[in-house]
């Protein structure tokens, strides 16, 4: 039981880390540009497809990843220049519409280029083993690598935001965007940079899941919603909030799916418990979100205290 809990907690952590990678860019985009971007999940998908393509072309996951990241960055910047830069001063509804249209285009575009069938990317040999946990349970090395890569990225982001001049502008921008432009900063370039960075982070998340999930059109849709939940819980614009909330959502979702039915079984008869558990588990994070918002309508780390 404890082992299972540990295993599921690790799985939850890994899932949370992925959510954080996608959410980090998105929360900055929300916070700084006040832009609601539904198409952010598509960038995650594009990252996965680029990695799959470059990996199969070069025969090496690491080279594939190294090529996919700048490609994702470039893709993000092109999108920003073509479409998003024209949406910053529009109202939220127009942003919702335009980015919704963009999802349709990109999902279908991916289908046209790569086909509707899922692609798979093999786990690179040196990361394909697993390490023992307590007892007979083992945990895959690749998932550990995802956790580590995510933590390193989070640390890097923290350094960027808390310790550099760009970070200072980002923090200022998240609280008071007009002030940043009043400081004479080239806001256009700052926005482009944030957007490119966000696209690359989402692409990185997509690249890292490519070997453990199937790469398919529409794969960005579900993660987008979870990312929204993360951002709402964490507080729009807050990297720290996104990190805390992503881990929280990842762990609650993963652990809840396993342990919800187990706990319920001690309260009611097994068949009812299993149906109730199956019903409640996927709803758990939404209930969590509702509870957080009920207590704190601006999330755990609201804008004024954003960091």
């Amino acid at each position: 039981m404890t082992n299972l809990l540990l295993l599921q907690a690790l799985n939850g952590l890994q899932f949370g880390i992925l959510l954080f990678l996608v959410a980090a860019g998105l929360t900055l985009i929300f916070g700084i540009m006040d832009l609601i971007n539904l198409a952010h999940g598509v960038l995650y998908m594009v990252g996965a497809y680029l990695t799959a393509t470059f990996t199969s072309l070069t025969g090496d996951f690491f080279i594939g990843l190294a090529l996919a990241l700048p490609a994702a960055l470039l893709f993000g910047i092109v999108l920003e220049r073509l479409i998003f830069s024209q949406l910053y001063d529009r109202d939220h509804l127009e942003q919702v519409l335009a980015t919704f249209g963009l999802i349709l285009i990109l999902n279908e575009g991916v289908k046209m280029i790569w086909g509707a069938a899922p692609l798979s990317v093999p786990i690179p040999d040196i990361l394909s083993g697993s390490v023992p946990l307590i007892g007979p349970m083992r945990f895959p090395v690749f998932r550990i690598v995802i956790i580590a890569a995510g933590l390193v990225t989070a640390l890097g982001l923290w350094f960027l935001v808390a310790r550099t001049r760009i970070g200072m502008l980002l923090r200022a921008g998240a609280t008071n965007a007009p002030m940043v432009s009043a400081l004479g900063v080239d806001v256009k370039r700052l926005f482009m940079l944030v957007f490119g960075l966000g696209a690359m982070l989402a692409g990185f998340a997509g690249a890292m899941v490519a070997p453990i999930l199937s790469v398919e059109p529409g794969m960005g849709n579900n993660i987008l919603i979870l990312t929204f939940v993360v951002i709402v819980i964490g507080g729009v614009g807050s990297i720290r909030g996104a990190f805390v909330a992503a881990i929280l959502v990842g762990v609650v979702d993963t652990v809840g799916r396993t342990f919800g039915p187990i706990i319920l079984r001690s309260l009611m008869d097994p068949s009812a418990a299993s149906q109730t558990g199956r019903t409640l588990a996927p709803m758990l994070i939404y209930i969590l979100m509702a509870a957080v918002l009920f207590a704190r309508p601006s999330g755990l780390f609201p804008k004024a205290g954003a960091s």
């Binding site: 939220h92 919603i225 929204f228 729009v236 939404y286 918002l293 999330g299």
Partner: peptide, 14 residues
């Protein structure tokens, strides 16, 4: 209880 992008995202989540 929420406004702006929060409202959009929370209705989506519900």
């Amino acid at each position: 209880r929420t406004k702006g992008v929060y409202f959009i995202m929370i209705t989506l989540a519900f």
